[in-house]
Nucleic acid binder design. Sequence first.
RNA 1: GCGCCUGUAGCUCAGCUGGAUAGAGCAACUGCCUUCUAAGCAGUGGGUCAGGAGUUCGAAUCUCUUCAGGCGCGCCA
Length: 580
Amino acid sequence: MIEAVNKQIKLFLTSIEGSSNDSTQAILNKFTTSISEDLKNGHLTTNVCMVAASILRLNPKELAENLEKSLKKLNKFKKVEVAGPGFVNITLHREDFVSIIKEIMKLEEDFGKSDIGNKKRVQIEFVSANPTGPLHVGHGRGAAYGDAIGRILKSTGHYVEKEYYINDAGRQIDILTASVLLKIIQKEINDFFPQNAYKGTYIELIGKDFLQNNKIKYNDIGILTKNLASDPEKEIDQIIVNLKEMDIEIWNLAKAFSLKSIIDSIKSDLKEFNVNFDNWFEESSLGSLESPVSEITKSINKLKQDEEAYEKDGAIWLNTDSSGDDKHRVLIRDDGRATYFASDVAYHKNKVDRGFDSLINVWGADHHGYIKRIEASIEALGSSKEILKVKLVQFANLFKSGKKVKMSTRSGEFFTLRDLIGDIGTDAARFYYLSKQADQHLDFDLDLAKSDSKENIFYYIQYAHARIFSLEKKFKETHSNLKMNIDSIKNNGYKKCDVLIHEISKYPNIINKSSRTLQPHIIIFYLRDLSQLFHSYYNDNHVLSESEENIQSIIFCLSAVKQTIANGLKVLGITPMQKM
RNA sequence: GCGCCUGUAGCUCAGCUGGAUAGAGCAACUGCCUUCUAAGCAGUGGGUCAGGAGUUCGAAUCUCUUCAGGCGCGCCA
């Protein structure tokens, strides 16, 4: 029906005196015809006259009156009227209004899906936490967000690949390895443990596991802690060098073992959190500067060749002017080692080369200063920075018993994603992570997420779904004589269901908007509104005592509501509950 | 100092490509369970949309500015 209205609007616009092709196009790009916010404004509403008025400098109300006449001539609608400052509101014929119910019954879980993405190839990189410890609650938010937008984009006709970038190269992995080894031999070195090593019981556990199949025997262990620098950064680097010298074989074994055990635990946490990646991309696969054919070497060579990178003060720098970054950035340090940024440049080149139409990076908000240099590198390597969208995810503060849960890094103990899942479950955790715009601070109340009050929106929505599920079950028992047939129901049998029908009609547009803006939270707010309308209906109407004449229509309508709630939850990666 | 984000009811937040009387939940107060799950529903009160200026027929929404808060500004990752 919206298409029919828009077709007529197009004709109407070209007939306006003084309009040009350009102005008409501008109006067409800007106006909307949509399901009205509120039934009192009819079923459909369009703001085209107000948009046209501001572009053509005409009176919106006059335009609206003309459009009204033009739409009435079509003879397709029950009522067309001008309202407010120049809206044109349309009331559909009964048959058209309720047709959504049959549509949903037919489409089932496909209701809300669309092809607006035109099969665009989108890659989403998210979480990508360093494999030096377990995922914490901050990573959880990025995981929930990245996975949700992946599902949303997929359901709106995009081809989506989800990827985790594993920083498995570089100094931090050496620090991890050293931490594990030092824990194992801690007693032999008088409980010495450097300030900058990783702490936490997980380090000890990895050490114990490692000893199951390996033996460690250092000959002159005293060397390890001799003449260490007082600067903690230098101290840990010296220890790494010493450990390697003392037994390179053990070092390599411990390194591989530690890395694998942490990556495995990250993978299993994410799996439990219902987050699945298509690719796990290892930083080490980009190779090193020592190899002339590695991706990292090749991308730097290309930058040098194109004079985008240059040497200064013994280091190699990237010119980042194209993105308006504050300063140029170092790719290779004056001691010849590549920076973390150099790997990232090669990694993004790799992504671009894989032929995606769009790249989405989900980053912690503290990385926002990093965006411009990556954009500059993409430009420098000959692509447009428009291909990359960086979505920033703010920190989440956890509250328990009204108190902020401290994220202590000093002791190495912190509230992990696994702890959170154990506490409130995957679905509730995902739900609350997604309940607010990703780029804003989130106060995550653990007590609320477990409470059984209306304030707990997660259960409020699930309760609506479960109530309908149970109604359907009861209905089958009490009305086993009735044969349910969607084509034989009466359009006037949807007693008092109109607000529900109107609300579920909005769903496809909610999904599209969520996809366009990459904002899952609007689906949550929509589901809450829909649930509230249902609970209200449920309280006022005793469904199972409705007449046989109407009850089929009503049950179909409520099933459509249930389907809509289920689809909305599923696209967020949350499982709808059938009973509570 | 520079850059990014935020400021809406007592609290937690929607609304922001300008549009219909600024919404919801909680908290406060009042009602509704002999009938389909009360983890529910109905109602009342509560707002200079941080302050100021501008653009517009129209501003919570756009621009400028002031104030307040958060984050980022390494040859760290």
